[in-house]
Design a protein around this nucleic acid. Structure first.
Length: 586
DNA sequence: GCCGTTTTCGGCCCGACTGTTTTCAGTCG
């Protein structure tokens, strides 16, 4: 039972309750519980087993009962009871923009509409506009929303959205009268995917900004416009919300629109307890006087907290940590001294030479670089003999470079389905940095995959477990494995887990980083570059690490090379006289 | 349905925009 299934169940109950016109606070309670389970770093089934469910915030006795029943039986009475009252097609109507529970229930009860197709037909034929508070414009809006619904793409990976946000912010800053412009929302929190862009501007002349915004390059359609707010869709499909504020409110708005929702509710609730009110215009005391708003840190100070970095604002204990003075000192990109997972043209799927990689790394200020090409199971990957040769080339190049940067001889060795490594012990034990990764047979059971990884970690030859879950954002799910068990063995073996910074991977995830830290396992942040430009991608890994509450001390490639080498030293397994390679004697 | 620095009962974050109304309900973030 995946947590996502429980989240879906709780969300479905909330939707069904809304459609049956239940108490909105009950609806909200289910939504909150769903969110809590969604951000849970451990399997919810495990909490069920331990009887710890009701200890979660927002999960009381009733919700705990529903979850327990659902985990055991795959459904629960409350869900089935509600499903019996609402046709399933009506549920799908809620996924359509501008159609909420009231509208869905209205068209269902008044017109007998129970499918998206029927809704579209009613909108186009004019039947829809005969309903109360339904006119021609709404019908039209619903019809076009149905079209978009059918071709909907989900959330966009951060690295795709970021350039659009940066470009728009630059253009907004150039509008006369604009004092500040920033991107907020999940983009500022550096979430791995972004739903839409939230842009904020402070200006003494809001009308001018709102008027200029829809005319910016890349904008396809204007969706909504008021005196201080404008919503557009870009040609690439991204929706962008713009809010214009007076400078005295900019900090409060920045805080509010950065979210997350859970974080905001926690801050507002905290403010209420102190007799204060927080909205996007500021923090106000009981007499309605503004006591903060211009700067974000003032908003936090007004509710008795230090400034909290956006990456932590997920409602996952950051307020409590801030209150106790125990916020982590989050890792920064500048803390990273090297990159421990880089492919050269010696791997079939990579394109840069050692020299190109070295000079690019120097440009990014890295002092060391591990060259980790693929092993023989991958097409044209290195076998033992070619790796010996490659190793000597790297050593030679390292001498030539004189530490600008240092090159480490490494490998990304496949973990074969039986858990053994794809190359011989002799050559592996000679390398400075062995990254071991799963690249095949993703469809094993969780037990088999866990055993496979555990066996690899126990060879005593592995320094780093590469992209531990194998996922590709939006295209390949992580393979199932028992993270806690892997962490346990990684700690026992002194193996680090990789935060793969390839923006399509971001693997480990933020939550898994936090668990690894709690389990006492070290991490590395690696670019997995396949050409020299990719070396820049480390920043995406840093953002994941920050969202996982990591500090510089949790990440091994913040260490100077000498200390890193000490960490990576291991007892020799094979006698060192046996691995003379062909053609490599001095 | 959840929860307690005002509460074991009675509250629950807050505001902008649209469309359809003629004062506001619904949706969204």
């Amino acid at each position: 039972m995946e947590n996502a299934e429980v989240v879906a169940m709780l969300g479905e109950i909330a939707d069904l309750l809304e459609l049956t016109d239940e108490n909105p606070f009950k609806v909200r309670a289910y939504r909150r519980a769903a969110q809590v389970v969604d951000t849970l770093p451990v399997p919810v089934a495990e909490l069920v087993r331990k009887g710890e469910l009701a200890g979660l915030p927002g999960v009381g006795t009733h919700t705990a009962e529903r979850i327990t029943q659902f985990v055991g039986a795959g459904t629960c009475d409350e869900l089935e009871r509600l499903r019996g009252k609402v046709p399933s097609g009506v549920m799908e109507l809620l996924r359509i923009e501008s159609v909420g529970p009231k509208t869905a229930a209205l068209v269902w009860k008044q017109l007998g509409i129970t499918s998206v197709d029927a809704l579209e037909e009613a909108a186009l034929s004019g039947r829809l506009s005969e309903l109360p508070r339904m006119g021609a414009k709404r019908s039209e809006a619903i019809a076009s929303a149905v079209t978009r619904h059918r071709s909907r793409k989900g959330r966009v990976p951060l690295h795709r959205a970021l350039p659009y946000a940066e470009d728009l912010v630059d253009r907004l800053r150039a509008i006369p009268g604009v004092k500040q412009a920033m991107a907020a929302g999940s983009l500022r929190r550096r979430k791995e995917t972004v739903g839409d862009l939230d842009l904020l501007v402070s200006s003494t002349n809001p009308e001018r900004v709102v008027a200029a915004f829809p005319k910016l390059p890349g904008v396809a359609t204007l969706l909504a416009q008021g005196p201080t707010k404008s919503t557009v869709r870009l040609r690439v499909g991204l929706q962008v919300d713009l809010r214009v504020l007076h400078p005295e409110s900019f900090g409060a708005a920045l805080h509010y629109f950065t979210g997350s929702k859970a974080h905001n509710i926690a801050v507002r609730t905290r403010a209420l307890h102190r007799g204060l009110k927080v909205n996007e215009y500021g923090v106000f005391d009981a007499k309605g006087r503004r006591i903060a708003g211009e700067r974000e840190e003032d908003v936090f100070r007004a509710v008795g907290l230090p400034w909290i970095p956006p990456e932590l604002r997920e409602g996952l204990g950051e307020l409590e940590a801030a209150e106790a003075g125990r916020l982590p000192e989050l890792i920064e990109e500048e803390d990273l001294r090297g990159d421990l997972h880089v492919h050269s043209e010696a791997s079939s799927d990579a394109s840069s030479s050692l020299l190109e990689l070295a000079s690019a790394a120097r440009g990014f200020g890295r002092s060391y670089l591990a060259i980790t090409d693929h092993s023989r199971s991958r097409p044209l990957g290195l076998d033992d003999a070619r790796l010996w040769e490659h190793l000597h080339t790297i050593r030679w190049m390292d001498q030539e470079l004189r530490g600008r940067p240092h090159l480490l001889a490494g490998i990304e060795v496949d973990i074969l389905p039986n858990g053994s490594l794809d190359l011989g012990d002799e050559v592996l034990s000679e390398l400075d940095c062995v990254v071991a990764s799963v690249h095949s047979r993703f469809n094993m059971s969780s037990e088999e995959m866990t055993e496979r990884i555990v066996r690899a970690l126990r060879t005593g030859l592995v320094h780093v477990l590469g992209h531990p879950s194998g996922r590709l954002i939006g295209s390949r799910d992580p393979y199932p494995y028992d993270l806690e068990r892997v962490l346990e063995v990684a700690r026992e073996q002194g193996v680090a887990l990789e935060v793969n910074a390839q923006p399509e991977r971001l693997d480990l995830t933020d939550q898994a980083c936090r668990l690894a830290k709690q389990a006492g396992v070290k991490l590395v942040i690696s670019s997995d570059s396949h050409n020299a430009q990719h070396l820049e991608n480390l920043r995406y890994g840093v953002w994941v690490a920050r969202r996982g509450w990591l500090e510089a001390g949790d990440v091994l490639n913040t260490l100077p090379l000498s200390e890193l080498r000490r960490r990576f030293r291991r007892p020799r397994r094979a006698p060192s006289w046996s691995h003379e390679a062909p053609g490599t004697s001095p």
